[in-house]
Each structure stands twice: as C-alpha cells, then as structure tokens.
Design a protein around this nucleic acid. Structure first.
Lengths: 349, 349
DNA sequence: CGTTATTTTTTAAACATTTACACCATTAAA
DNA sequence: TTTAATGGTGTAAATGTTTAAAAAATAACG
C-alpha cells in the first residue's frame, strides 16, 4: 500500500553508473565531471527523484525535526507561540512535533521520552504546572539534547530562555489599577512552582509597595492547575468574596485564569468593573469584545515562539558546545479596556 | 554535539552474541531460548537501550508520523481539532507534524510536498480557502498516500471525510433567528470554493424557504479569505448597511467571520442585538462572555480531530487497499446567547 | 611508448535494524 | 548407525544515503 519512491539506485541503474557517483553528482561535488552531473541531474528530474529524508537522518544522525511540549494547544497564548515556532521551523526546513503535557508532570516526562526516542534534534518546552523537579530535563541535556525553555522556565537548567518581562507586566497592570483608584487589589495566580507566578506576583507586590499599599497575603489565591479545573477559580473567587474587607479589584496571571475569573464573576452576577475591577494576562483576540472590554496584559506570543526556535536552531547547528546562554526577555503590552475603569471615573485620566 | 545512543550492536558485543540474536530476543521471537532472552533483556535494561526509530522507519518504510495541514493553528476551532488529533495519535504511538497553509493554495501544495517528502504515513487536511483544484491531493493519493479530509472537504477525491452537519447547523441558526422574529437575515460567508460555505448557505436558504422568506442574493456576502484579512469583513458589513432594506440579522459561517463581524459592528457603534442580531459558527470558549453573549453554532472540533485520526490510522494500517470510504457527519450544537434575542422579545420563547 | 600526474569513477563501509537462510548440535525415528 | 527433525544461533543482505579509499581512465611529458 506504500508507494515506493525513486532512489539513487534507480538513477544509477538507469545510467549504468554507481550510486556514489549519482550521490556526488546530486550534491554537486567537485569530483564529478560536469557532463556526468548533467546526465544525473536530468535523469533525477525525469524520474522525479526525491531524496529519502529517513535514510539521511540515519546517516547524519539528525532528524531535522524539533519537539515542542506545551501544556495545552487549544489556548490562545500557546497556539500563538506554536504559530511562531512553526514559522521559523518551516523557513529553516525543520518540522515540528507537538505534544501536550496537560499540566501533568508525568505526562511531561512521557512526552519528553517519546520525543527524544523519536530522535528530535532539539526541544522547546514550557513547563507543566506540576513540574518542580527538572531532573528529567537535566539528564536529557546531559546526553547532548539541545533544549530551550520559554514562558514557564526554570533557572535550575543552564540553557537559553525566552520569557516576557513578567515583573513589568504585572507591575504595570497593578499600577494601572492603583492609578484608577483601586486600593484593595487581589491576585489570582497560578501554581507557586511556576516561574511566571513568582515573577508576576513580585511585580504586583512591588507596585503595591511603591504606592504605599500594604501587601495582604489573604488577597493572593493560587489555582494549582491554572484554571484547567474550573472549580479552582470559582473557589478562589468565592474566598475573596467572603473576606471581611472585600477586594475592589482582581489581577489574574494567565489566560485561562483571566477568562475563567470573568466567567465566574458573570455567573455570580457580579458586575465588572462596578462591583470589582479586573485586569489579567491574556492573549485572546477577543478581549476588546468581552463584556466589559477587558484590560489585559498581552504577551508577544508569536515573537516568543520565533525567538525560542531561533535560539534552539542555533544550539542544534552549532559546531562547538555552547556554554554562553541567553535569557531573552520580551516586553508585554498593557491594553486598557473598561474592566478596570469605573464609568464615573473615566475622566480621571 | 549529539549523544550517541546505545544500539543493538552494543548489546551484542557486551554479551558476545550476534546482533540478530539480540534483535530477535528483544522482539520476543520464539526462536530464541528463554535464557538468552533474559540475558539480552537485562543487558538492554542495564545499558538503557532504546530502539532507533529512524533505522526502523528505513527498514519498515514507515515513519509512524502523520502530517496535518490546517489553514491556521491559532484559531479556536482548528486548535481544538489538533487537540483531538494529538490525543489519538499519542495513544497509538504516532507523532503529529503540523503545518499551516495560511489559506494559501501555493503554501498548501508546498506543505504537502514537504510532509510527503518527510515520508509521513498519512495526511489529515482541511483545504485552504484558495484551493479549488485538488489534483495535488489526487496525485499523492495515487502514489499510495492515505489521506483523510476534515471540515473543508472535497467530493472530488474518494477518501474518508469527517465533517459537521453544516446544513443542519446553519438551518437551525437561521430558523432560530426567524423564530425570534427576524425577517431580513443576511449571511457573511467564506469563499465559494469551500464545502462548508455551500453547505452552510444551503441550510440558510432552506430555512428561509421553509419560513416563506424569499432568498435575497444581495444579503449574502463572501469573504474570500474568511476574515484573515480584516478589511474583508468590514467591507461586507458596510455593504450590508448601505442596502435600501437593511438586514435585521446576520449569520456568519465561521469562527473568524463571527468574531470579526462582532468587532466591526462594535467599532461602528452598532448595537447587537438591538440594531442587528448576530448568530455565527464559532468554537470560542468565550462566546458567553462576549458583549452580548453570542448565539453560536458550535462544532464538536475535538471529536472531529479524533474521528479523522482514527479513520486515517485505519487506512494506514489496513493490509488491503481500502475502497469503501466513510463520510462521517458529526452534529453541531446551537448555543443560544443574547445576540439573537431582542430584550423586549425575550419572552416570545 | 612508458611513466607520472591528474581526473573521474567505483568499491566498500557505515548509519541501526530486521529477517531469510545457513549452520551446528542434539535428539528422535528408522 | 544413519537420517531426519528440532532448537538455537550466526551470516549476510536489505532499507537509502554518504564518503573515505581504492581503482581506473585520461592527460601530460620526457
């Protein structure tokens, strides 16, 4: 049922020469006379010859493919990152093999096993929420596998990183809320394991401090699965609303948390921003269409995918072992909607 | 820089036996004595042997990977489909190589070339908007490449298809608008080339006919690039609003068109549903959070991906050539929001 | 014409694996 | 005792390609 392709042998046989001559002619080696070259090229053309990438992979011990592990494909942020990855990979003749960890540590390990056994030439990974031990990555790296982390990174592994300035994103979002007159700002954040969580919360705290607002730990709720389990978010919101001093604003630190939080508020009949303001990290194209149009911190996701892939290919194609690693930091963008702007205060600036 | 893996040879050398014995022992061949088997297995374990899939691919002339071509990854519908594809592929030990056509015929051809030269074992494809000639698919199929089409299909190629009941989805959406009292229902649709367009418009027309509303061709606007170019949608909306008899409702036939249309209406300050109602095909998770909560036709995207992959693997793994092809039709779901329900008429039913 | 230098081509090994076939002991049957 | 069958293992070829090394063909030169 498989179509058998034309091989170098077929060309050799057709022309009555050896396969090595054909091989060299095709790669335009200086050792082959130009007549023979032309002959081979014409014949290859005529027979519609295409080199077999698998045989090549076997020979060269490289597959010209890269593995990607994200927690979920169907997520605006990650699908945009993948878009960026794909664009560079396509350009450079690599293919992209994608797998999802579904935020599970176990699944992440299996994915990595799978990808490395499929002999990808390198790996792009954004850690799962459950991952706080990265020895699986370290051992892969030790065996020589080039790895680049993006978004959810770890400083326990020495390699290229691509992240957004999470501190800045959260700082600006929080400051924006403060400028709008909000004083009791709660945060709904991801798992404490994740780099994005600590960095974003740090920005949040710093903004509070700089505006002389005391940091209140009960205002910070963590959703371990980042909203993959919806009840997590409901619970976080509920807890915030049972506090004596209810918050007047919420900042959420990821796409799923942001939309999940809005959903919960809407279902509970809580008006945004009248009852409570909301600002969140989100890469949804629909932020401005939401009710209310959402103030979001938007990450240059596509750019992140592109940068990570470029760095990875650099690692893969480097002749000598790389020891100097780059930590590329992209800039997030605060897009102001109505979810953080009280109607009557809209004139405040 | 590449880590050299343990091979069957290393095991053979370590135990002083031949590679063929090792190979057979590992695949648990009946020809090998159980002592030898145990010896080999233990040794393999100890050396952390993993079979080289590339060598296997070369030998077996199959790569255990499938190629996917969609127009865009960062799109709720397609990312959900990919999620489904990935889940089945993972289960069955195949990997998924994704590429995007970006709605370009030329790019689609290049993608297919690329994937087939990478010797994927089969292809899953949803046609680009520009594709009205599928000879590239036919010639691939002729060479023995198993192909399954989904969502945007063509009846010019005999193979498995997985689609949603587009007629029904559009019919029910239109009928819903009619039931809500709307009479002048416009449609913003994709390229006329696409199967989804004709099927969905057919459902729309049939619903009108069954409610004794005359079909008005000027109410139907096509966006060739399905809203990938935003101005297309603006133009379509503008044209509808310059008609003498302005429509009182719009039905949109795809994700991008739906959100794009809502965006245009919002930017123009047109109130939905007060000024005009809107119902659209969409797989966004955020439909209920939009302003207004959108009435949408939702496709079982994940299910579609799963079904298409199952059918493809069936083709790939079939011993004998398959001649009976299945056209699997899934059922869409109409989710009613507020975008199609006039507030004062909310009681009408 | 014979020798050397140069150009061109072929041979063979390698990449990791599978498998038809051959081989060699045993052991059972004749 | 010979023959045949059986069980276990090794040899070698095959998958498609590259490449070092050997070989052959050609050219140059005295």
């Amino acid at each position: 049922m498989k179509f058998e392709a034309v091989t170098i042998k077929d060309i050799a046989k057709a022309l009555g020469i050896s396969t090595s001559t054909v091989s060299r002619a095709l790669r335009d080696s200086y050792e082959i006379s130009s007549e023979t070259k032309q002959l081979v090229l014409d014949c290859a053309e005529k027979l519609n010859y295409h080199p077999n990438p698998i045989a090549l992979s076997l020979k060269e011990r490289r597959s010209r493919s890269i593995g990607v592990v994200v927690c979920e494909i169907a997520n605006s942020f990650f699908s945009q990152v993948i878009n960026g990855i794909e664009s560079i990979a396509y350009e450079k003749g690599y293919n992209v093999i994608i797998s999802q960890s579904h935020e599970s540590y176990e699944r992440e390990i299996m994915d990595l096993h799978y990808l490395s056994s499929r002999s990808v030439d390198g790996l792009l990974i954004s850690l799962s929420t459950e991952t706080n031990d990265i020895s699986h990555l370290l051992s892969l790296q030790e065996k020589g596998m080039p790895i680049v982390l993006f978004d959810r990174v770890s400083h326990e592994i020495k390699t290229h990183n691509v992240v957004v300035d999470n501190f800045k994103g959260a700082y600006e979002a929080t400051e924006h809320l403060l400028n709008m007159g909000y004083k009791n700002i709660a945060a709904i954040a991801n798992s404490e394991f994740l780099s994005i969580t600590t960095e974003r919360l740090a920005g949040y705290k710093e903004a509070l401090a700089n505006h002389n607002i005391k940091y209140n730990p009960t205002y910070v709720k963590h959703c371990f699965y980042g909203g993959m389990i919806f009840s997590e978010i409901e619970e976080a919101v509920n807890k915030l609303f049972t506090l004596k001093q209810k918050p007047d604003a919420i900042i959420t630190t990821s796409d799923k948390l942001t939309t999940g939080c809005l959903k919960t508020l809407m279902r509970r009949g809580i008006k945004v921003p009248d009852d409570i303001a909301l600002v969140g990290f989100s890469n949804s194209d629909l932020a401005e269409l939401l009710n209310p149009p959402l103030t979001v911190v938007r990450q240059p996701a596509m750019e992140m995918g592109r940068a990570a892939t470029e760095l990875l290919l650099q690692l893969i194609e480097s002749k000598r072992p790389v020891t100097q690693f780059e930590n590329r930091v992209l800039t997030p963008e605060l897009i102001i909607g109505n979810s953080s702007v009280l109607q009557q205060e809209e004139t405040i600036k």
